[in-house]
Amino acid sequence: MAVLSPELRGEAERIKARYPAGRERSAMLPLLYLVQSVEGRVTRDGLREVADVLGLKTAEVEAVASFYSMLRLRPTGAHVVSVCTNLACALRGAKEVYAAAHDAIGSHAEEMTEDGLLTLHEEECLGACDAAPVVQVDFANHDRVTPERMRELIEALRRGEVSEPSAGRAPRDFKEASWILAGLGDGA
């Protein structure tokens, strides 16, 4: 089955049109985000369709997709919880925050929970070290997170709620975050 509906194929063409004629390959990352916004990860079919839109081989698209950590080629939860543990956050207690997230999410935390809800990602510096330790839920920032707050954020996700981030609007889930990353609507 096609990943992109006819309507989304039209969206894909508009994404291509952001770049100069003959340079449509520049649409690679936004197109990969577009297929990720449909499937919650980048599947083989998604790679094939991006290749089709750009006139490339699937392997050429896969070679690019596999380079970038925000494009998820493996099974991924509906929500991705990223905990920065780089130095500035580590100095402010990030290890304990990561451990709390790991415990709360349980086994296979770094892959995907059995119910398909959550994926935990140990993140590198998120460029918000004034608010360390920093956690992102579907790339929306939560500042100065304590282990207790970390557990609350995860419990909220389990109840089907998305907590208010420290700035901006929280995406509904990882799929909507991918839609925003494709440079499409940001819901406001």
């Binding site: 990223s82 993140e123 460029g127 790339f139 901006g168 925003i180 990353l181 440079g183």
Partner: peptide, 19 residues
């Protein structure tokens, strides 16, 4: 023709730039 390459993890800042 100019481009602003926004770090992916800066989801919110990407939106700020776009608007």
């Amino acid at each position: 023709n100019a481009y602003i390459y926004v770090r992916g993890e800066f989801l919110h800042q990407g939106t700020i730039v776009r608007r």
